[in-house]
C-alpha cells in the first residue's frame, strides 16, 4: 500500500469527516471538508503509530494536515529523516 493510500484509510477511520474520503482529491482542503482540530490530533496519533514516526514540534500545525497530499509529503520526509537518524 502506498503512503497516500495508507493515509487515506487512516483519514477515513480517524478523521471523522462528514463526507466520504473517497470523494476527496489528494489536494482537497481537509479543514473545509470538516476536519476538526480535535480529530486532527487523533489523525496524527494514528499516523505516528502506522508509520512509526514522530511529528516534530514545527510540524504540529494546520498546514501539515491541510490535505492528504500535505500529510503524505511530511510523512515521506519524516520517514526518510527518522530512518537515517
Amino acid at each position: 500500500m502506498s503512503a497516500v493510500e495508507a493515509i487515506r484509510s487512516i483519514v477515513a477511520k480517524h478523521g471523522k469527516l462528514p463526507v466520504d474520503v473517497a470523494t476527496l482529491q489528494d489536494d482537497a482542503d481537509l479543514y473545509a471538508a470538516g476536519l476538526s482540530s480535535f480529530a486532527s490530533v487523533q489523525l496524527m496519533l494514528a499516523i505516528e503509530e502506522h508509520f512509526d514516526i514522530e511529528f516534530p514540534e514545527d510540524r504540529l500545525n494546520r498546514k501539515t494536515f491541510s490535505s492528504i497530499k500535505a500529510i503524505a509529503e511530511v510523512v515521506t520526509e519524516l520517514s526518510e529523516d527518522q530512518q537515517a537518524a
Binding site: P18, Y31, A33, G34
Partner: peptide, 8 residues
C-alpha cells in the same frame, strides 16, 4: 455556504 461542513 449551504453545503459547507460545520467547521467550514
Amino acid at each position: 455556504h449551504a453545503d459547507a461542513a460545520a467547521s467550514d
